[in-house]
Amino acid sequence: MTILRSITALLAAVVLAVTTAAPAAAATFTNPIKRNGPDPWMQYHNGYYYLATTTWNSTITMRKSRTLAGLASAADTVVFNLSGRPNGCCNMWAPEFHLINGRWYLYYVAGRNVPDYNPTQRLHVLESAGTDPMGPYTFKADLGSTWELDPSILRHNGKLYLMGSAIDGTQSLTITPLSNPYTISGPRRTISLPTLAWERQTGAVNEGAEALYHNGRVMIVYSASACWGPDYKLGLLTLTGSDPLNRAHWTKSPNPVFQRNDGNGVFAPGHNGFFKSPDGTEDWIVYHANSSASGGCDMNRSARAQKFGWNADGTPNFGTPVRLGTQLAAPSGE
């Protein structure tokens, strides 16, 4: 009986300790999620965050992590090597991977191995063998024969569109219809030129178009002004008509939606992407920025992430870019 009482008391003590223990600390992270990570693109898929950024060489790399915080120390894996390709071997920029019809399509910019490579930069796409964002990939197609940057995909009414940035008097946003993820099916159109003063700081530029969908609203968040200056920032287009190929059907917001914050030491925030939290309840933006006003358009830009909300009119509210090292709550569901 004494032994039984002792066992009972011990079990009661264990239960009490378990029920009164402090709750586990909420997961957090700090920016940057990748140093030397310009032009970031990230997706959460099957329990992992996947992140790809510009490499400025002949490789396309990706890193993955169970947590957002873990991306900062995760290893980069080469998912494709461009060496030997005649029209896109080198200087890989702005990779994005999109899951379309059960396969990942990885869009990127690359040019030739020549001293003045910038005029040779073109859009290209790879296709995955299955549903793993890290591949394996095979080369699928060249997408256009003229200079163009920053490929991304817009989906509207069951149709696919290739977005980019090309010269139309100055560097402007473009859109091209696709019959499938790798085949152009019509002429390229311009849908936005840098006409506003805040789009022309240091240089007149519209680039980095990224689709954003919310409550039936179709939007494009894009980067404006020169990436080699501190005033690179984000603007917003909203589809107010029915045809994404028609410039008149897009309405440009008069003011930027995300920009430098000197007090937080954040300059030239731009070239963004979007991803959902693991439980699907939160919207997040990933972007690059510099930590000084003298920062350039180079590999020193770092990749950063933060949660955003929505305004009453259905437009995104990105808030203020946070200071590096600020502890932030991790995405919901981690």
Rank of each mutant, 00 (worst) to 15 (best):
P136C: 14
S165R: 06
L173Y: 01
F139E: 06
L173R: 01
G216F: 08
A166G: 11
K140Q: 12
F139T: 09
L162D: 04
H214F: 08
G229P: 14
N180Y: 03
L143C: 05
T202D: 05
W198T: 11
S179N: 01
L160H: 06
S152Y: 03
T195L: 14
V205N: 11
G144Q: 02
S128R: 04
Y117I: 06
P187D: 13
K140E: 08
L212K: 01
F139A: 05
W147K: 09
M219T: 03
L196R: 15
T176S: 05
E127S: 10
A141N: 08
E148H: 07
L126Q: 06
V218M: 06
S145P: 00
H214D: 03
S145M: 10
S223P: 06
I191S: 10
P177N: 01
L193Q: 12
S242V: 02
A226E: 13
Y182C: 10
I167H: 11
G169L: 12
P244F: 09
Y161W: 01
R122D: 03
Y117V: 10
L196E: 14
L178F: 03
R200Q: 14
H124A: 10
P133W: 12
L162G: 02
D168S: 13
T146R: 09
R155F: 00
G186K: 01
E210S: 10
L173T: 05
A197D: 15
V125H: 12
T238Q: 15
I191F: 05
F139C: 05
L236K: 04
V205F: 12
G208L: 07
P181G: 04
Y117C: 04
E148I: 00
A209H: 00
G241T: 14
L239R: 03
R189C: 09
H156C: 00
H156L: 04
G235R: 07
L245A: 11
R217G: 00
Y137F: 15
S179D: 01
E207Q: 14
E199K: 02
